[in-house]
C-alpha cells in the first residue's frame, strides 16, 4: 500500500495550489449573493405560487363584495376561496417538505435520497397545484377587470371560452414541460450518485418512492379534480350558465 505516499503527495499539492485566501469581507459579499441552484429555483416557484394563491383569494373576496347580490358570481367566488384555502395549506406543507429535502447540512446520503424522493413523488403534485393558480387567478382577475371596465360581467361567447381555456391549458402544459425538463437531468444525477454511494441505496430509495407515490395518488386525483372544477367555474362565470347576470 502506498497510503503514506498518496497523503504526502496530497499535502504537497495543497501547499502548491494557488487557492487565494478570502477575507471575511469577501465572504460576507458571497453570502449576500444570488444562486442559480435548482433547489432555489423550485423553492422560489413554490413561494411565488403561495403569494399568487393568497392574492387570488383576496381578489375573490373583493369580487364577492363587488358582485354582491349576483348569485352566480357570489357562488363562484365562495367556491374559489373554499378550494384555494386548502390548496394554500397543502402548498405550504409541500414547501416545508421541500425545505427539509433541500437542506445541505444533512448527510450526503440523506440529502440525495430526500431530494430524489421529492422530485419523483411531490414535484408533479407541486406543478399541479401551481397550475390551479392560473385558473383561479384568471377568474379572480377577470372579474375585477370586468367590474372596473363594464361594471358587470360581460358574458363571453363559445369561441372566447374555448380560446381562453386553450391558452390556460397551453400555459399549464408549457410549465410542466419546462420544469420537468429542468429536473430530469437532476433526477438522473441523483440516481447515479446514490448508486455510487452504496449499491443498495437506490433500491431502498426506489421502494420508498413507490410507497410515497401510492400515498400521494389521492392528492394528485384531488388536484386534477380541482383543475376540472376550475374550468367549470370559469365556464359558469363567463357563459352565465343557469344564473342571472347583473
Amino acid at each position: 500500500m502506498n497510503d503514506k505516499k498518496l497523503k504526502d503527495m496530497w499535502n504537497k499539492a495543497e501547499t502548491l495550489l494557488g487557492a487565494s485566501d478570502y477575507e471575511s469581507s469577501s465572504i460576507e459579499q458571497f453570502i449576500s449573493g444570488r444562486t442559480n441552484d435548482t433547489t432555489k429555483k423550485i423553492k422560489t416557484m413554490i413561494i411565488f405560487d403561495l403569494v399568487l394563491k393568497a392574492l387570488a383569494v383576496c381578489a375573490l373576496a373583493v369580487d364577492f363584495v363587488l358582485y354582491f347580490g349576483t348569485a352566480n358570481i357570489m357562488a363562484v367566488t365562495v367556491a374559489g376561496v373554499a378550494i384555494l384555502i386548502p390548496l394554500i395549506f397543502m402548498q405550504n406543507k409541500l414547501l416545508n417538505r421541500f425545505s427539509e429535502a433541500a437542506d445541505y447540512g444533512q448527510t450526503t446520503r440523506n440529502k440525495l435520497a430526500s431530494m430524489l424522493i421529492y422530485l419523483k413523488t411531490k414535484f408533479f403534485t407541486t406543478l399541479l397545484s401551481v397550475a390551479s393558480t392560473y385558473l383561479f387567478g384568471f377568474i379572480a382577475g377577470s372579474l375585477v377587470y370586468f367590474y372596473i371596465v363594464y361594471g358587470q360581467v360581460r358574458p363571453l361567447d363559445g369561441i372566447d371560452i374555448v380560446v381562453f381555456i386553450t391558452f390556460i391549458l397551453i400555459g399549464i402544459g408549457l410549465n410542466f414541460v419546462v420544469n420537468q425538463g429542468q429536473v430530469k437531468y437532476q433526477i438522473k444525477h441523483l440516481e447515479t450518485c446514490l448508486n455510487d454511494l452504496n449499491d443498495k441505496n437506490l433500491e431502498l430509495v426506489s421502494e420508498n418512492i413507490e410507497l410515497q407515490r401510492k400515498r400521494d395518488r389521492s392528492n394528485k386525483i384531488l388536484l386534477a379534480l380541482v383543475l376540472v372544477l376550475g374550468i367549470l367555474l370559469l365556464i359558469i362565470v363567463f357563459k352565465n350558465i343557469g344564473f342571472i347576470v347583473k
Binding site: 441552484d37 433547489t39 445541505y104 444533512q106 450526503t108 440529502k111 440525495l112
Partner: peptide, 9 residues
C-alpha cells in the same frame, strides 16, 4: 457536509 453536498449537487 454542506460543502460536499453543494459540490456533488
Amino acid at each position: 457536509r454542506v460543502a460536499l453536498n453543494t459540490a456533488i449537487s
